[in-house]
Deep mutational scan, measured.
Amino acid sequence: FKEKSRSVLREWYAHNPYPSPREKRELAEATGLTTTQVSNWFKNRRQRDR
């Protein structure tokens, strides 16, 4: 993950740790990642924050 992608994901996570499928698609387009990568990033981040 590039730093720019991570910062976008972190910003979204601060507002909503559970993005909808549509939001995940938008994030994937904005970051250049796949929706699976975005989903996994959020899943891992939520697990880490437990």
Score class of each variant (00 low, 15 high):
44 N>C: 06
40 N>T: 12
35 T>M: 11
36 T>H: 14
39 S>H: 07
16 N>Y: 02
13 Y>K: 00
44 N>V: 07
39 S>K: 09
44 N>E: 10
27 L>T: 00
23 E>A: 05
49 D>F: 02
13 Y>Q: 03
12 W>V: 09
32 G>R: 09
44 N>Q: 09
32 G>P: 02
35 T>K: 12
41 W>E: 03
17 P>R: 09
5 S>V: 13
32 G>F: 06
9 L>P: 01
3 E>R: 05
4 K>Y: 11
48 R>D: 11
13 Y>D: 02
4 K>R: 08
13 Y>H: 01
19 P>F: 01
38 V>L: 03
36 T>N: 14
15 H>G: 12
21 P>N: 10
6 R>I: 14
16 N>I: 05
23 E>K: 04
34 T>D: 12
40 N>A: 07
23 E>Y: 03
28 A>W: 00
23 E>H: 01
14 A>T: 10
13 Y>V: 02
27 L>C: 07
35 T>W: 15
26 E>K: 02
18 Y>Q: 08
12 W>Y: 10
5 S>L: 11
12 W>K: 03
3 E>C: 05
11 E>N: 07
4 K>C: 12
18 Y>V: 09
47 Q>E: 14
16 N>M: 02
45 R>V: 12
46 R>P: 04
44 N>K: 10
25 R>Q: 13
32 G>K: 11
30 A>I: 11
26 E>D: 09
21 P>W: 07
48 R>V: 06
16 N>K: 04
19 P>S: 01
39 S>G: 13
10 R>D: 12
22 R>A: 15
31 T>M: 05
18 Y>E: 10
34 T>K: 13
36 T>L: 09
7 S>D: 14
16 N>R: 01
12 W>C: 05
42 F>N: 00
40 N>R: 13
31 T>P: 01
49 D>H: 06
6 R>K: 15
12 W>P: 02
19 P>G: 00
22 R>E: 15
14 A>P: 02
33 L>P: 02
12 W>M: 09
22 R>C: 15
30 A>P: 01
17 P>H: 04
40 N>C: 08
3 E>Q: 05
5 S>K: 10
37 Q>T: 08
47 Q>I: 03
33 L>I: 08
3 E>W: 03
50 R>C: 06
49 D>W: 00
38 V>P: 12
17 P>T: 08
23 E>P: 00
36 T>P: 10
25 R>W: 10
50 R>A: 06
8 V>I: 14
35 T>E: 14
31 T>F: 00
1 F>M: 04
48 R>P: 03
22 R>F: 14
33 L>E: 05
3 E>D: 07
19 P>H: 02
23 E>C: 05
38 V>R: 00
39 S>D: 14
46 R>K: 04
9 L>V: 01
20 S>L: 12
31 T>S: 11
31 T>A: 12
23 E>Q: 05
8 V>H: 07
19 P>A: 02
24 K>F: 14
7 S>L: 14
43 K>M: 09
9 L>Y: 00
1 F>D: 04
7 S>E: 15
5 S>F: 08
25 R>V: 15
19 P>N: 01
4 K>Q: 09
1 F>Y: 15
1 F>K: 11
49 D>E: 15
17 P>W: 05
36 T>K: 15
22 R>L: 15
34 T>Q: 06
25 R>M: 15
45 R>S: 11
5 S>P: 11
7 S>N: 13
22 R>P: 15
46 R>I: 05
3 E>N: 09
44 N>M: 11
11 E>P: 00
42 F>C: 02
21 P>G: 06
4 K>A: 07
25 R>D: 12
11 E>F: 01
4 K>I: 11
19 P>V: 03
10 R>H: 07
5 S>R: 06
41 W>P: 02
48 R>K: 10
43 K>C: 10
34 T>S: 13
47 Q>N: 07
26 E>C: 05
36 T>C: 09
12 W>A: 09
41 W>A: 01
10 R>Q: 07
17 P>I: 14
28 A>D: 01
13 Y>L: 04
26 E>G: 06
42 F>K: 01
20 S>F: 04
48 R>Q: 11
36 T>I: 11
16 N>T: 15
9 L>D: 01
14 A>H: 08
26 E>M: 05
36 T>Y: 10
40 N>F: 03
31 T>C: 08
14 A>D: 09
13 Y>S: 02
14 A>N: 08
11 E>D: 12
12 W>N: 13
45 R>E: 13
34 T>M: 04
43 K>D: 13
34 T>H: 05
34 T>N: 15
17 P>Q: 14
45 R>K: 14
2 K>V: 07
15 H>Q: 14
35 T>C: 11
41 W>H: 03
28 A>Y: 01
11 E>Q: 06
30 A>S: 13
31 T>Y: 02
37 Q>E: 07
35 T>F: 15
24 K>Y: 13
28 A>L: 01
23 E>M: 02
1 F>R: 03
49 D>R: 03
18 Y>R: 11
7 S>M: 12
28 A>C: 07
35 T>L: 11
30 A>W: 08
27 L>A: 03
44 N>D: 11
29 E>S: 02
29 E>L: 04
29 E>N: 06
7 S>H: 11
17 P>C: 08
31 T>W: 01
32 G>Y: 05
9 L>W: 01
15 H>T: 15
33 L>A: 06
7 S>F: 11
